[in-house]
Design a protein around this nucleic acid. Structure first.
Ligand code: FES
Ligand code: FES
Lengths: 147, 147
DNA sequence: ATAATAGAGGATAATTTTATCCTTTATGAT
DNA sequence: ATCATAAAGGATAAAATTATCCTCTATTAT
């Protein structure tokens, strides 16, 4: 459903958002430790998201990645679009050149509803809300033992 | 959502099923032409499906692939399981080691419903029914001009 | 029996995705 | 000003996926 880069990106940004709420910027190393994502890989993904202004970053001591007011009400949909592109939402589920209402593939009618559900899942909560659930311990970003 | 191999496999098997209803076996070349799938690639995928007894095949003149009574009421779910595995249905959507009700990831609650919809899409119709829709021209397996 | 046909199987190539490493640049602490 | 820190950027490597090719084997028509 999501590429590994996208799964990693979602976990990382939710974590960053939680820390940002507490006023902390976080580095790639710490993100890697807390989310179980390979450090150099998440660094690349976040570098890309920062370039696209989806998250913020600053260099130097006390620097790191953050999600502040300027990225407020950021949704997972924007993340998925940025990392995986819109193929999942607009492409043909069976790989035809394009998704067409006039010449639908066998799954077209059903997949439309499913896509709506996926978009809803990715837009109904802001990333801040996802981060709060993690803070409360209702959900987790890694299977590692939290210290 | 589905790998390219899986998209190809679904299109090919629906086509094979339609031809089988008319009593025809079809070769990789013809399948490639009608579904727009690269011939050597679909040959490999179908070879694998045949080995797993999900479809039938015979060698030699008048040979080819087919879907007969022994594979009756075959569903797309079985195809997807055979080609892509069960990751989409049982793995964690955010790539955690396993999907766990006790320690859910942020998307777990929502993804459960979406998975059910996907499974429903892949099981509610038999492949024979999908093939009939294609025969009627209601749906298509390729964007090429049909001869 | 023979020849032609078509899948099976194995090897290989190209591409994309995933992952890592190293050097440079910006920035904050001292 | 200097130094340490951490992201940016570019190059590279490893692995998985996608795609192709060639030989072998089974089968059928003649
Ligand atoms: S999903 Fe295949 S045509 Fe729309
Ligand atoms: S989908 Fe992530 S834990 Fe179930």
């Amino acid at each position: 459903m999501f590429s590994r880069a996208c799964q990693y990106g979602i976990r990382a940004v939710i974590y960053i958002c939680g820390e940002s709420q507490k006023g902390n910027k976080v580095g790639a190393k710490q993100i890697s430790e807390k989310t179980g994502v390979p450090e150099p890989f998440i660094a690349k993904i976040l570098q890309d998201l920062a370039r696209k202004k989806i998250i913020g970053s600053t260099k130097g001591p006390t620097g790191g990645f953050f999600v502040d007011g300027r990225h407020q009400e950021l949704t997972l949909k924007q993340l998925v679009d940025a990392i995986d592109g819109e193929e999942l939402f607009t492409g043909c589920s069976l790989g035809l050149e394009n998704c067409s209402e006039a010449n639908p593939c066998p799954l077209h009618g059903e997949i439309k509803q499913i896509r709506l559900s996926i978009v809803r899942m990715l837009t109904q909560k802001s990333i801040k809300e996802f981060a709060e659930e993690v803070e409360k311990g209702e959900t987790v970003l890694s299977r590692m033992i939290q210290t």
